[in-house]
């Protein structure tokens, strides 16, 4: 077989693929043109990617002319894309840094503007049979940090019933998780995790593993609690009273490891982007925040 034949085959294959794909593509393009529609590029936090997708899907029923494209990658990735000016809205489960604001101004001439779209309280879970109810941030750090001092439950004065080996089983997240980064920043103060933790691939898996292992401790979103686990009260410093992770303590900022879920845009939002953000901040958008397991902006809007 000579090269010519190969290339002809390639053309045939390519045409077949096109024929299969083309009607779908061209159809939606034509629809979009007819309606004079806009596409909103939305990228960033992996913690928020689910709620962002839920917003995008629901918004399609509100305003079919506007197409919202959502992707993850991490808060830093989203903000970097905003600085380059390639997206319209960046999702971030942390606040934008000063140098990022400067970079954005230098690069695009516009100042990033942030909107808080909801909150998340990062809960610390232990097994239901664990007598511990409360932990301080310092103790938590000593459990999870590289070369940390606390490796056994007895060091916390806890006796787990019916267990011979009371080594603490640490349950963490894979390193690309935004939750992992938030925990590392706020609890470990940017130091590294001790290796050997069970690094789960999802928030739900963390809670399930903790529910099945009596000596385990793990962190995950508050919306994932089940009957096998309990959420610990968190004390900012040892000796201070612990605060439970609830919508209320998140909103009044007494829970020490709560975070806001932010949307960043360049300059004042206009047109379709403004309408979309207004809708996210409205009752309808906030209901989706709650349905996704996070805390909506105002507890009054919460149905719970």
């Amino acid at each position: 077989m000579n090269l010519n034949q190969v290339s002809r085959m390639g053309v045939v294959a390519a045409l077949t693929v096109c024929a299969l794909l083309y009607p779908g593509c061209s159809g939606s393009n034509r629809d979009a043109e007819r309606a004079g529609a806009a596409t909103i590029q939305n990228k960033g936090s992996d913690t928020m990617v689910n709620v962002a997708q839920a917003w995008a899907e629901e918004y399609r029923t509100v305003n079919p002319k506007v197409d919202v494209e959502v992707s993850g990658g991490g808060s830093g990735v989203g903000i970097a894309a905003l600085i380059r000016g390639t997206i319209d809205i960046a999702n971030a489960s942390r606040d934008i840094k000063d140098e990022e604001i400067q970079q954005a101004k230098a690069n695009t001439g516009k100042e990033p503007k942030g909107f808080v779209a909801g909150y998340d309280a990062l809960a610390v879970y232990v097994n239901r049979t664990n007598p511990l109810d409360e932990i301080s941030l310092e103790q938590l750090a000593e459990i999870f940090v590289e070369d940390g001092r606390i490796t056994k439950w007895s060091q916390l004065g806890v006796r787990i019933p019916d267990v011979r080996d009371d080594t603490i089983v640490r349950v963490s997240r894979q390193s690309s998780s935004g939750t992992y980064e938030f925990f590392r920043e706020k609890v470990l103060h940017k130091k590294d995790f001790e290796l050997g933790s069970r690094d789960m691939n999802g928030s739900k898996e963390v809670v399930e593993l903790v529910g099945n292992a009596r000596t385990a401790i793990g962190y995950s979103g508050m919306g994932y609690a089940n009957s096998g686990v309990k959420m610990l009260r968190i004390a900012e410093k040892p000796g201070q009273p612990g605060v439970p992770p609830t919508a209320e303590t998140t909103l009044n900022k007494t829970y020490p490891i709560a975070r806001s879920l932010n949307l960043y845009v360049l300059g004042d939002p206009k047109g379709a982007v403004k309408d979309y953000i207004d809708w996210i901040l409205s009752n309808a958008g906030q209901q989706i925040v709650e349905a996704s397991g996070y805390v909506p902006l105002s507890a009054k809007k919460s149905a719970r």
Binding site: V163, R164, D165, T167, V169, R198, E205, L209, N212, A213, R214, T215, A216
Partner: peptide
Amino acid sequence: GLTVMSRIIVKYTSAPVGV
């Protein structure tokens, strides 16, 4: 492995975690 086997392993061995 995650659901059935991990419970069996926790039940019949001294492993703290079934995975």
